[in-house]
Design a protein around this nucleic acid. Structure first.
Lengths: 359, 359
DNA sequence: ACACGGTAGTAACACGTGTTAGGTAACCGT
DNA sequence: ACGGTTACCTAACACGTGTTACTACCGTGT
């Protein structure tokens, strides 16, 4: 045994080791694993046996380097993983994305910002493509992705034409739910929205929230109101922040008769807060959500909310990404429709805003 | 310009291209990106400028191959991603794991079986280590991992001594909740448990479920009962299966007075089923869960359940894995304690089993 | 006997990086 | 002026694979 074919003393066995053990060349080993037609079945068996003996399986590093695919999709997250996983919205979304993964035999890589920098995270990630979640359009990540010609799909962003995207009709959904409350007779309305990212220098709404606010203004306009006539509060999208913000809102006088919450997760916190304050829902305050998470139908009262097809959104995003990776399709856009789900958390205000009500 | 330093016509720019553009060697480019002390700041600036110009960033493939870390942790899942994401348990668990990722600047790769084979999935995954979730011990994956000397941590399995592991005291938790119901006076008890994986030839409980059943038997023994005196039903761990199984259980006569559900997710389905059947909880039937998911305190009635520290479990598993990757620590084991959380879903049976109760 | 075609296996290259050993020129002290 | 140090950069190697071009071989038809 010369020094050349001595097995690497440290570390895992390599294809050269099993080649030596089976008495063949390294190429034969590769063929035995990948292209069975290129070696005789006899030597193939011998090689695989030797590999089994040495506990060798071709590591993904080399295979990937050679230009192959990594068999995994990346999800670019707007926050760190604990914060993301707190929101059941993402569980739903990942279910849809997971359907595609199951079909394609891929795994799913959750990629949070590294020290507030998603660009860094993008650079380190070994994936075949990215699904970009809820990021404002003008941030640097998508520039980085376009520059490097890595396939990606934008979700819930104002997407430029150059990239595939999946969105929902936020404006329409918000318009409907606001109109619903106005139709019931509510006029003193408070809106609980999602805080823009703290690290942005000039505070702007995240894109979907801009659209939802626009939809609310559309509805208000039909009864001659404008945004200045309602209260708008913005907090981070957590249950606890929804709880606290609701406490704050209910401390104001006159109290609003309806609370439009732009994310179910925060609406759950609002329900808790109202419950703890002894405020009857919908008797004293009507409440609406947005998303229609499964939990929305298990709350008491059941939550009236805007359904968006979250799972389908994830699945379509995954399909688009697969297409982009294969180079099949060019920049498809899709806007999914929402639906108002009326349950038990809304009813007409106890004391109508117009003074001509019977005593 | 010779043919040698011509940029690769196809594909992304390489470090050689930016080296040529900046008029330096390829090594200098590498140093400019990784070890700033090795090049003068002037040329470093020039190299980085050239890189920016060419839209070059060092791809992870080469870096990984060189023996470096991939900066991501793998989670080996027992089912495909949609099924896993349906269970809020995993959202909590991933929150804990995510805390470690945030601290270490890593990403998280969700690795489902590929066509029912986790071994295949393990082979294709490029991660620094694996957290193995809820897998029976005797399956082939951990053999594969040990053989290839890849760091891993077992969670919710009967772990051999050779590997780090994190578990909870399932037996103790189940004993407490069963004892609680027995103390209230319940004797006709039904247990709703989790079905073993369908792909196993000889049906066996998954390890934590075996322990939980043992705990229930412990409690039963204190009042002279055994497992044969109670009804045990096993279904897959989904909300819908919990719903259906509860319907089936309530169709039997005599009805049980208490329902011990060994997973909160299924208990939520049970609450829905009982609600739809018009069965009052806890008036007619007492109900308990296991896990204490956050949703357990938002149900009506609030669910009495066994709290297990899911987030902590994920965090500790992550910590152990990081230690294993660094080679710092050898095979730590940890068993986390549970706590009985009594809420509103249990009370003494309406008609005591003993006939000597005062009318 | 010999050209020919098909098969089994191999040498060599490409992938793109990180890193070690080495080399050159400038600089410095005597 | 000159040996020795330092700053800077480069050539060369290693990582482990997939794949292409090629050779050795063997049977076969003429």
């Amino acid at each position: 045994m010369t020094a050349k074919d001595a097995p690497a003393a440290r570390g895992r066995p390599t294809s050269r080791d099993v080649a030596a053990a089976a008495g063949v060349s390294r190429s034969a080993v590769s063929f035995a694993f990948n292209d069975p037609t290129r070696v005789s079945t006899a030597t193939r068996e011998r090689i695989l046996a030797a590999a089994r003996e040495l506990a060798y399986t071709p590591p993904p590093s080399g295979r990937t380097l050679r230009g192959g695919r990594t068999q995994s999709l990346g999800v670019l997250l707007p926050h760190d993983i604990p914060k993301v996983m707190e929101n059941p919205y993402y569980a739903r979304f990942l279910m849809g994305l997971g359907q595609v993964c199951t079909r394609e035999g891929m795994s799913l890589q959750l990629i949070p910002p590294i020290g507030d920098s998603l660009v860094k995270a993008v650079r380190h990630a070994a994936v075949d493509g990215f699904v970009v979640c809820g990021l404002d359009t003008d941030r640097g990540e998508i520039a980085e992705l376009t520059r490097r010609a890595i396939p990606y799909v934008l979700v819930d962003s104002d997407a430029p034409d150059g990239a595939p995207s999946v969105d929902i009709d936020d404006r329409d959904g918000a318009r409907h739910v606001a109109q619903h409350l106005l139709d019931l007779g509510h006029r003193r309305i408070a809106v609980l929205s999602v805080e823009p990212r703290a690290d942005r220098p000039a505070p702007t709404y995240r894109d979907p929230l801009v659209r939802r606010m626009a939809g609310i203004e559309d509805a208000l306009a039909t009864v001659g109101l404008s945004r200045r006539d309602i209260t708008v509060v913005e907090v981070p999208c957590t249950r606890m922040d929804g709880y606290r913000a609701t406490q704050a809102i209910m401390a104001t006088r006159p109290r609003p008769t309806a609370l439009v919450v732009l994310a179910d997760l925060m609406a759950f916190g609002a329900i808790d807060a109202l419950h703890d304050l002894g405020v009857n829902v919908p008797g004293e305050v009507s409440l609406t959500g947005f998303d229609d998470l499964p939990e929305a139908q298990w709350t008491r009262p059941r939550l009236t909310t805007v359904r968006q097809p979250i799972v389908a959104k994830g699945r379509i995003a995954g399909d688009f990404l697969i297409s982009a990776i294969r180079g099949e399709d060019q920049h498809p856009h899709q806007v999914l429709q929402t639906a108002l789900i009326t349950r038990e958390s809304c009813k007409p205000p106890a004391e109508p805003v117009s003074p001509d009500s019977a005593p």
